Computed example of a mutant assay.
Amino acid sequence: MEKSNKIIYYGSTGLLSVMMLMSAGMYFVKHEEIASVFTNLGYPSYIIYPLAIAKIAGLIAIWSRKSNLLKEWAYAGFFFDFVLAAAAHISISDGEQFGAIIAAVLLLVSRFYEYKVYST
């Protein structure tokens, strides 16, 4: 059972990390496209770079596990990011909310199994 918990934890955290790194990378590389999407969603475009940096910092906090407080803040920050992203996409009916929903599910699985793996 312990081995399967680790596989689920590292698998979900790895997939979540790939999604976050791809997202942050797009924020830097395709800034103009992302800025128009953020504007359509009702968010200001000046939050794109800080959000990209926060995503990378959150991944570092989760993977390094140096500080439980920072790790928990990273999980919480990602959760709010995904919920707000899904709500924004649903509110304008563009059908793009599924990425945020998948990321939220991966986040919840990662957090649940992180507790199972490292609490013993």
Rank of each mutant, 00 (worst) to 15 (best):
F78Y: 01
A52Q: 13
S12H: 13
F78W: 00
K116G: 00
E96A: 14
E32D: 11
L15E: 06
F78R: 01
E96W: 07
L69T: 01
L106S: 14
S36N: 15
L15K: 03
V37Q: 14
I90H: 07
H31Q: 09
A61D: 08
Y118G: 04
Y115R: 08
L41N: 05
A104G: 07
A76Y: 06
W73Y: 11
E33K: 15
S110R: 06
L16V: 13
Y49L: 09
A61F: 13
T39A: 15
S93W: 12
N5D: 13
P50D: 15
T120D: 10
T120A: 04
A61C: 10
Y113S: 01
S110I: 00
K3S: 13
L84H: 10
A57H: 01
M20R: 05
W63C: 07
A100I: 02
Y118S: 02
E96F: 08
F28A: 07
L69I: 01
M22F: 02
L106K: 12
F28Y: 04
Y113D: 01
F80C: 09
I8G: 14
S4Y: 14
E96N: 12
T13Y: 09
L69S: 06
L21I: 08
I60S: 08
G42T: 08
A103R: 06
A35I: 00
Y118K: 00
A88D: 01
